[in-house]
Computed example of a mutant assay.
Amino acid sequence: MSQSDRTGERPGGPVAGETVRHGTGVNSNRAFPTSNYPHNLDPFVLFERFYIEPDTGFPTHPHRGFEIVSYMLDGAMAHEDSLGVAHTAREGAAMRITTGRGIEHSELPADGAACNGLQLWVNLPRAEKDAEPDYEDAEPAELPTEERDGASVTTVVGEGSPLSLRTPTEYLDVAVTDAWSWSMPDDWAGFCYGVAGEGTVDGRDFGEGDVLPVTDGRDVELATDEGFRVVAVSGRPHGEPIRQRGPFVL
């Protein structure tokens, strides 16, 4: 990808994710908000890929005011929370947490080995900020996968998935094999994020750690010669300010 694309100088083009370090030394590639894309993406607060080494992680900490979707790419992550849930998510599994009025949880590597995955924060609308905290998870076999023209698509959140959010959302894990068109409702917003391999989005180079924000509901064309993997996430905006204060979304 050219430097002009990576710094966002070409409107509507891909930008590079940015490394952030948090927890007890966890490195993440954050898609947004970053210096390259210094905005939330209503209804989404942030999105990143986390890499947890055996001696790092996220010890018990609080959250409130939003929902979390964690999706494992490799290894296993142990989750425990103040609802009494203790669950280990392995490759291909997903978890949804509604933090609502407040929850505490920890996220640590399981089995003494490193793990990595994707985490999405989805804002709760103002009227639901004080919702009861809740949790659900899904094993890989529960997430529907179908072959579409030019891609194999797994639905993490959306039609056929057991995971549900309080905001209408579609979260797809897409293995692009040739050319694939991604679409969303006209009044939704979303993004593509590069997980592995290389290709193009709307004719522009796109690879691991790159993100394409989409705020105009347009169709996006993805193509590859070698094969690449992306997640494509979209949702209906709330039209409300997103006020993030560390682990809280007010």
Rank of each mutant, 00 (worst) to 15 (best):
L41P: 03
S181K: 13
D205G: 15
G13A: 13
L46V: 08
T154Y: 05
M95R: 13
S234K: 09
R64P: 13
G13E: 11
P247M: 00
R6H: 09
E170A: 08
P109Q: 05
P168A: 06
T88V: 12
S2R: 15
G92W: 07
G199S: 06
D74I: 00
A16S: 14
L124T: 05
V122P: 08
F206A: 07
F58Q: 06
N116W: 12
D81F: 11
T154C: 05
E139G: 12
S161P: 08
V230G: 06
A196I: 11
L172V: 00
W180L: 07
P140G: 09
G75Y: 00
T169R: 02
G217T: 01
I97G: 07
P237S: 06
P185I: 05
D225V: 09
R166A: 05
V249G: 08
N40C: 11
A94S: 04
H79F: 05
P247Y: 04
S2E: 15
R96P: 14
A93H: 10
N36A: 14
V220I: 14
I68T: 15
L46F: 14
A151N: 05
L143P: 11
C192R: 05
A141T: 10
E104T: 15
S106G: 07
L124N: 11
T154P: 10
D74V: 10
N36C: 08
A78L: 02
C115W: 00
E91V: 14
V220F: 06
D81S: 12
N36M: 13
A127G: 12
L165S: 08
G207C: 09
H105A: 04
V122K: 01
E136L: 03
S4E: 15
I68M: 07
D134L: 01
P237G: 03
G117D: 02
V122C: 03
E107F: 01
L172G: 02
A131E: 14
R148N: 04
G17W: 00
L120G: 06
E132T: 11
R218G: 08
P11F: 11
Y51W: 09
A89S: 10
T19M: 15
G112Y: 02
P237R: 00
M72L: 10
L73A: 05
A93V: 08
L118G: 03
G13P: 03
A31G: 15
P162A: 01
E104N: 15
Q3S: 14
F58T: 05
A86S: 14
R229Y: 03
D74H: 13
N36E: 13
E136S: 13
F47V: 01
Y193P: 06
N40P: 10
P213S: 03
G160F: 04
F47Q: 04
D81C: 09
Y193M: 03
D202R: 14
H79V: 03
P14N: 12
S164F: 01
F66I: 01
G150E: 12
E170V: 08
V214G: 06
R243D: 11
G100E: 15
M95H: 07
E104Y: 15
A110Q: 04
A94W: 02
S164R: 09
S4W: 13
S183W: 08
E67Q: 12
A110V: 04
V214H: 05
D130R: 00
A31V: 10
Y171N: 01
T169S: 00
D219I: 08
W182T: 04
S183N: 12
Y37A: 09
S28L: 12
E139H: 10
A16V: 12
